[in-house]
Design a protein around this nucleic acid. Structure first.
Lengths: 188, 188
DNA sequence: CGTAAATGTGAACGACATGTCACTATATAG
DNA sequence: CTATATAGTGACATGTCGTTCACATTTACG
């Protein structure tokens, strides 16, 4: 059921997928859906929460695999690529939930999702902060801003890939993304 | 009518605003709306197109005010702040249209909007390319990637501001954003 | 087997949103 | 002042979608 819903939501968006279509794709009767989920929103919520948890777990693990801050970032960019390549249809929903247009589904932000996303931003910010303290990184901006920047940078690359997979592949080498942060555009 | 629709869409999202509510807010009867717009989607489209055109014009102008590439970028970041600060309620819709979740309104991408957005990305990429040729910039990434990066970086800051205006103001000094590109995180 | 619990069904229902249309009011022009 | 165009109205037809519920089918188990 969840995977049928996932594909449809990701393709057409929450409001353009009627329950009966999900039922049909999942090869169940409508009534059965309602045995498992209180309503459409509950189904969507479960779907999103299950997936974002899986992602954030994988991404958090990527930050913990080494002590070197540069490697942590490389692992993050690499892991994000792997996770999403394997779950292409989730990306749209994930981006929709963490980026802009949340009001499209629920009117208010979903507190749970926001909180988990916020926590991840914090733990990534800690990597930058530690790197700055250890003098591995220069303090070119506030660590939290750096965290938001890197997340959005990778999202941007994911988005390019989503739109034109063959023309804009998600980079194999994490440094393709990271050099934008690592190297300065200006000399000195 | 358009400004009534704008406020409502921006607050609740396209699918959560019935036409009669727009009519009420605009102090017209429903029938009158349909004298001016063929349908709801047409109303939305007109709204978005009018605004994105205004923005892209302002942002493109910002890139043309000087010959110095660094100043062009500063003007861009500054102009983006000004434009959106003056039109807060449009940002949500603009981000929703240019970032991720387009399928939330129309099932397919809106070709017009995508095209204009793509053109702007191109002209910003030209700034980076020119800067690299003139040796003002180091070639730390593909110019188009740099363009996408800067646009997404500023969007990220706008988004922070949207969520918590007093806690995360959009930076007065454009270099707060630009240093993330200008200065390298790593030494050398 | 028999029976009870769990799982599954889909026609029917009601709420509600879009878009229409016959009509009125107002403005413009000859 | 009449005629014609334009702007405005809002009750309602039409259709869709989320959700329910009385019933059927399968499974679990003593």
């Amino acid at each position: 059921m969840l995977s049928a819903a996932l594909e449809l939501f990701s393709e057409k968006g929450y409001h353009n997928v009627p329950m009966h279509e999900i039922a049909e794709k999942a090869e169940f009767a409508i009534g059965t859906l309602y045995k498992f989920f209180r309503n459409k929103e509950d189904l969507y919520r479960t779907l999103i929460l299950e997936n974002t948890d899986r992602f954030h777990e994988a991404l958090t693990k990527a930050l913990e695999e080494t002590d070197d801050e540069v490697e942590k970032l490389r692992n993050y960019v690499r892991a994000k690529g792997e996770v999403f390549r394997a779950n292409a249809s989730v990306i749209r929903l994930y981006l929709a939930e963490t980026q802009g247009a949340k009001f499209n589904v629920m009117v208010g932000f979903d507190a749970d999702i926001r909180e988990r996303y916020g926590k991840f931003l914090q733990s990534l910010a800690l990597v930058f902060e530690a790197g700055i303290k250890k003098k591995r990184f220069k303090r070119i901006a506030d660590p939290y801003h750096l965290s938001v920047s890197l997340v959005n940078l990778t999202n941007a690359f994911l988005f390019l890939w989503l739109e034109e997979p063959e023309h804009h592949p998600y980079p194999e080498d994490p440094d393709t993304v990271l050099n934008i942060l690592f190297k300065g555009l200006l000399d000195q």
